[in-house]
């Protein structure tokens, strides 16, 4: 096989989805992917990248442009702390931290949502808040003379959540 044939077959390899970058770029947060110059300033300033070699935002941006969809939508983007250091540091305004949200939104629609976050979403649908108070917290509140917890208008919230399709995205029944 000649060299050009080899490149050809690699581009059509099913593990490379060349549309991925364009899909990301067309989401409200994903435009930055088009501006990335792979300088690595995001990784050098990332507090998570210094803790673990499993996370490298520059690599993640690269994987989006190459179209390594499976890797991109896997566990990796969930290592981001959303501290936005990279958004502040990027010389290109590629908003790496924002692109991560775009990928997570795409991953969520394909069913990849970490259980902790899925539970938060379920609580929002049920109570309007991300968690429920324990009995001991309610007792603490009373002991300190705090007012009762103001309930959210769940009926109104549900109308909004149905309209945006949130319940379907997280598969809430």
């Amino acid at each position: 096989m000649s060299k050009s044939e080899d490149t050809e077959s690699r581009t059509h390899d099913s593990s490379h989805d060349t549309k991925l970058m364009h899909i990301v770029a067309h989401t409200p947060r994903g435009k930055g992917i088009l501006d990335c110059i792979q300088c690595g300033r995001c990784t050098s300033s990332c507090p998570m990248a210094r803790q673990t070699s499993r996370y490298n935002p520059r690599r993640l941006m690269e994987m989006i442009t190459i179209g390594l969809k499976e890797e991109v939508l896997s566990n990796t983007p969930w290592y981001c702390l959303s501290c936005f250091t990279c958004v502040d540091k990027c010389p290109q305004g590629a908003d790496v931290g924002e692109v991560i949200f775009a990928i997570r939104n795409i991953a969520a629609r394909e069913g990849h949502i970490p259980p902790g976050i899925k539970a938060q979403g379920g609580n929002i649908i049920d109570t309007g808040k991300i968690s429920n108070p324990t009995k001991s917290i309610l007792k603490q509140r009373q002991e300190m003379g705090l007012p009762e917890i103001e309930p959210s208008d769940t009926e109104e919230l549900l109308k909004i959540l149905r309209k945006t399709g949130f319940d379907k995205i997280i598969g809430h029944k």
């Binding site: 989401t27 949200f101 997570r104 979403g121 309007g128 991300i130 959210s152 208008d153």
Partner: peptide, 17 residues
């Protein structure tokens, strides 16, 4: 009647809109 803000990481990660 206010609800969760909503959570800038969890809920924003699921669906921006």
């Amino acid at each position: 009647g206010a609800g969760c803000c909503p959570d800038p990481i969890g809920i924003q990660s699921i669906d921006y809109k």
